[in-house]
């Protein structure tokens, strides 16, 4: 091969690579567009909240004092669930929620890192001491769901789980204070 041929051939090789790189670019653009599209159309966001709360004094915070935990329905009809994730249990251990209504879940940890998911749903967040972890969701099917701690929190991590009871509207009955308890089965 002469030098000019060589250079032409080398350019052709580079050309095929650039073509491939263009395809890669299209793939990346497609994936990112999907993320942007779901963010703009249905408000999909990661569970960011950046709400600081002293983990050492949660029991004095009012909102996360023991008798304010669990499911409550505000005067505006909003369902808010407040849960403590501690070594090695969730408080409360059973969480009632209504089916087909927006629910805001708020979690805090007083001690170490925790995390949770609710099986069969997209509810998934870390619970970092110092912050309120918050997830907005809507449950679509009734039934009992498993809510395990999914982040290593110490030697009792494997036994840390709670139950989420997704109730039909007629069984989701707030008392006079707007509080709801799990149905006894």
């Amino acid at each position: 091969m002469t030098e000019i041929h060589q250079e032409l051939h080398e350019r052709r090789i580079l050309g095929t690579e650039l073509l491939w790189a263009f395809g890669v670019g299209v793939l990346i653009a497609a994936i990112l567009s999907m993320i942007v599209f779901t963010a703009l159309s249905i408000g999909v966001n990661p569970p960011s909240n950046v709400e600081r709360l002293d983990p050492k004094a949660l029991h004095l915070s009012g909102e996360f004092a023991e008798d304010n935990l669990g499911t409550s329905v505000g005067s505006d009809g909003r369902v808010v669930v407040r849960v403590i994730a501690t070594q090695f249990a969730f408080l409360p251990r059973c969480i009632p929620v209504p089916v087909g209504r927006p629910v805001t879940l708020r979690f805090v940890a007083p001690d170490v890192l925790h995390g949770l998911l609710i099986s069969g749903t997209n509810v998934n967040t870390m619970v970092v001491p110092g912050y309120v972890a918050q997830v907005h969701t809507e449950f679509t099917r009734t039934g009992d769901l498993l809510m395990p701690c999914h982040e290593y929190c110490g030697l009792g991590h494997s036994e840390m789980w709670a139950t989420v009871q997704v109730l039909p509207e007629n069984q989701f009955q707030p008392d006079s204070n707007g509080r709801v308890s799990c149905a006894q089965r």
Partner: peptide
Amino acid sequence: MDPEHGNATKFIQVVLTAFVS
């Protein structure tokens, strides 16, 4: 899935993550 960072900073790094591929 952490609560201590805002959506925007996470989004920027997701964009950069796409380029790692």
